[in-house]
């Protein structure tokens, strides 16, 4: 069985026929070729596949493509503007919030969710907000700094 789906990813609509069992993350990576979204586990733990689904964070490994029919998805490739990085991307770069980079796309989108829900989080709130994203390189410390830095930038930008 295949099912027609229409999913908008990073502002562009894609109409495809998919098997019901196809995960959204494989739709994004294998069908659309947008490989910035990563797969790091098979039990919804690591958060490497975190995307924004209709504006809120979701683990794309725990969602079928058919469930996302009609939805709007933002991946790491769609976060930056035409010419400039998103403040979170800038802050991860400025604060050395990444090493091998594999968890980074998911970590940045999880951080996006965190700041959506709490524009001015404390370090402890950041640590809790990122509890669903694993990083084996950084010990998280510079990720916390990066998110804090982005929060300050983003608040500065709106005030």
């Amino acid at each position: 069985m295949t099912i027609p789906v229409s999913i908008t990813v990073n502002g562009r609509r894609y109409d495809r026929e998919v098997e019901p069992r196809l995960l959204l993350v494989h739709f994004i990576r294998d069908v659309l070729g947008l490989t910035g979204t990563k797969v790091g586990c098979d039990t919804s733990q690591c958060g490497s596949c975190t995307i924004l689904l209709d504006g809120v964070s979701a683990k794309a490994c725990t969602c079928l493509a058919v469930q996302a029919d009609g939805a709007s998805v933002t991946t790491i490739e769609g976060l930056a503007g035409d010419s400039e990085l998103h403040p979170l991307q800038e802050s991860f770069w400025n604060k050395h919030g990444l090493q091998c980079g594999y968890c980074t796309p998911g970590m940045i989108l999880a951080s996006h969710e965190l700041l959506r829900c709490n524009a001015d989080p404390s370090a402890e709130e950041i640590r809790h907000g990122l509890e669903g994203n694993m990083c084996r390189c950084t010990g998280y410390q510079n990720i916390v700094r990066a998110v804090r830095d982005a929060a300050e930038t983003m608040q500065g930008g709106t005030s």
Partner: peptide, 9 residues
Amino acid sequence: IGDPAVRNR
């Protein structure tokens, strides 16, 4: 439960 992304879905 889980983490923020899990709680969203």
